[in-house]
């Protein structure tokens, strides 16, 4: 699971109002090179919740992202490279995503988050 996906997932438990961002608990992760595409990053930037991305990256020891970001930073190649790395090149293999409101844990096994709910949670 890439941090891009972490940024796109929110708690789907019935009754939860504020299910984003899910708190990332990662016990293992890998880095895989992905071809850099500045256009993609620029078009994605408005869709990304920056604090959620920076926070998740920090959880796995990647502290290079600034706490806040705005569109003017997209002119910096250096910024884009870091954005790219955090968003696409870090894969969480094992861990969990935790609902900030209910505390419900969604496990991540072998890189696949499990968002399935029990009957009483739907």
């Amino acid at each position: 699971m890439r941090l891009l996906t972490h940024n796109m997932l929110s708690s789907n438990v019935k009754g939860v109002v504020n299910g984003f961002p899910l708190r990332l608990e990662a016990s293992s992760w890998v880095e895989k090179e992905v071809e850099f595409n500045a256009d993609f990053l620029r078009s994605m930037f408005p869709k990304i919740d920056w604090p959620a991305l920076a926070g998740a990256a920090q959880k796995i020891g990647y502290a290079a992202l600034p706490d806040t970001a705005d569109a003017t930073m997209l002119e910096s190649e250096d910024f884009l490279k870091k954005f790219h790395h955090a968003l696409l090149e870090i894969h969480v293999e094992e861990g969990a995503l935790v609902c900030p409101e209910s505390g419900r844990r969604f496990p991540i096994n072998k890189g696949i988050p499990n968002m399935l709910l029990n009957e009483d949670e739907v």
Binding site: M1, R2, L4, T5, N7, M8, L9, S10, S11, N12, G19, F20, D49, F106, K110, G111, I112, P113, N114, M115, L116, L117
Partner: peptide, 25 residues
């Protein structure tokens, strides 16, 4: 996951009902 990997392509895989958990964002 294995099928994708064997062919050198990548997709983010989510174990969920339809798109539950992805729908909002």
């Amino acid at each position: 996951q294995k099928t994708l990997f064997a062919h050198g392509v990548h997709a983010e895989i989510i174990n969920t009902n339809i798109a539950s958990g992805l729908q909002k964002r």
